[in-house]
Design a protein around this nucleic acid. Structure first.
Length: 115
DNA sequence: GCGGTGACTGACA
DNA sequence: CTGTCAGCCACCG
């Protein structure tokens, strides 16, 4: 597929993250049908201009905010996440692994529109 | 074409 | 826990 299609899919995957939930760059890439393209996801978000895109729900694989700690974007992301009820401490989000009752996939994406 | 860079990641020490 | 390393890939000078 071409670069434009890839971007569309990635943006769609990001938009699919439910409010109050988070997903990793690699996870988003995988959901977009582009496994291993975490860096592409990061690049897309960094150049994104859509104010409606929930970019703040995308985190690094270790649960930490990807931007430089203390930067404006870093603070903004933490603020938006907490505003949605996501627990954030020291720039880190509580990962789904701490809630073993449900599958990781279900926790990340929930029932979603397809269920 | 080439090397540097980055909102990345998993493996290892 | 922190650091280093090799992959990764689009973009830029």
């Amino acid at each position: 597929m071409d670069a434009d299609t890839a971007r569309e899919r990635i943006l769609a995957a990001v938009r699919a993250i439910p409010r109050g939930r988070v997903a990793g760059y690699g996870e988003v890439a995988r959901r977009a049908g582009l496994p291993g393209r975490a860096r592409l996801v990061a690049r897309i978000l960094s150049s994104n201009d859509d104010p409606a895109l929930p970019w703040h729900r995308v985190l690094r694989s270790d649960g930490r905010i990807a931007m430089p700690a203390g930067s404006a974007g870093w603070r903004e992301q933490g603020r938006r996440l907490r505003a949605e009820g996501v627990e954030v401490s020291a720039g880190r989000v509580r990962m789904p692994a701490q809630a073993p009752d449900e599958g990781l996939d279900a926790l990340l994406w929930g029932p979603g529109p397809g269920a």
